[in-house]
């Protein structure tokens, strides 16, 4: 479904991604793990069109998407839940969700809202509140809901656990688990390697802009010492 070949991303003179190749098949859950500055976020941002692709190619459903503007990539069914949540703070929860299907998704807005509310009942209780007044965990749920309401073919999440309390992280991952069971294709970027390796079918370890290891998450868990070394010693599995 998604095929990234020899991707490189430079910002000015700075190399963020040197040479990254991987593929995600339909219905698969893939995690990209690695330490800070490994190029994980830049890889996602290149796929969604927010970061410039210096070289290499990105194909989605057999069609080249690198070079397309971000809003066109989104309309093809590639959703990115950005790092740091990025809710539309002054707008209500419901307006945030409606914006998620402003240009995406099919059917009536009310049905889309109902679908999201049934998975995230807390958002229903808070639908008329300003999104900026929600807790961090609720905001994370909201941005995931805002991406889901657009019925994405692939859901990409950038550090969904960042800055959240452990039990909230568990709630986010159990939500993602539920999505996986409905057949949702997911590409996850995480620093929290433990959670990511438990969740994903396959994982890719990035370091200094290159793929160091890749394989079934269970295999990587079995080689946790090597993975830890690439994660820079501060991360333990």
């Amino acid at each position: 479904m998604l095929n990234v070949q020899s991707l490189a991303v430079h910002y000015g003179g700075i190399v963020a991604v040197r040479d990254v190749s991987f593929a995600v098949a339909r219905g698969e859950c893939v995690a990209i793990i690695g330490p800070n500055g490994a190029g994980k976020s830049s890889t996602l941002r290149a796929i969604s069109g927010l970061a410039p692709v210096t070289s290499g190619s990105i194909e989605f459903e057999g069609k080249r998407i690198d070079g397309l503007p971000a809003h066109m990539i989104a309309r093809l069914g590639v959703a990115q839940v950005p790092e740091g949540r990025h809710v539309f703070g002054p707008l209500t929860v419901e307006d945030n969700l409606l914006l998620g299907r402003s240009r995406l998704g099919t059917g009536k807005p009310a049905d889309g809202l109902e679908r999201v509310y049934s998975v995230m009942p807390k958002l229903r209780d808070r639908r008329m509140q300003k999104a900026g007044s929600l807790s961090g965990g609720e905001q994370q749920m909201l941005v995931i809901g805002r991406a889901l309401i657009g019925e994405p073919k692939i859901l990409m999440l950038d550090e969904p656990s960042m800055g959240l309390a452990p039990q909230i992280v568990d709630a986010v991952f159990s939500l993602l688990d539920g999505l996986r069971r409905t057949g949702q294709t997911i590409l996850l970027v995480e620093q929290n390697a433990t959670q990511a390796l438990e969740f994903a079918d396959r994982s890719i370890v990035l370091n200094v802009g290159e793929v160091r290891m890749a394989g079934a998450s269970s295999d990587l868990r079995a080689r946790s010492d090597v993975v830890s070394a690439y994660l820079g010693g501060t991360e333990h599995i």
Partner: peptide, 9 residues
């Protein structure tokens, strides 16, 4: 950026 990710031009 968030708006672009929602398919908004």
């Amino acid at each position: 950026e968030a708006a672009q990710l929602m398919g908004i031009n």
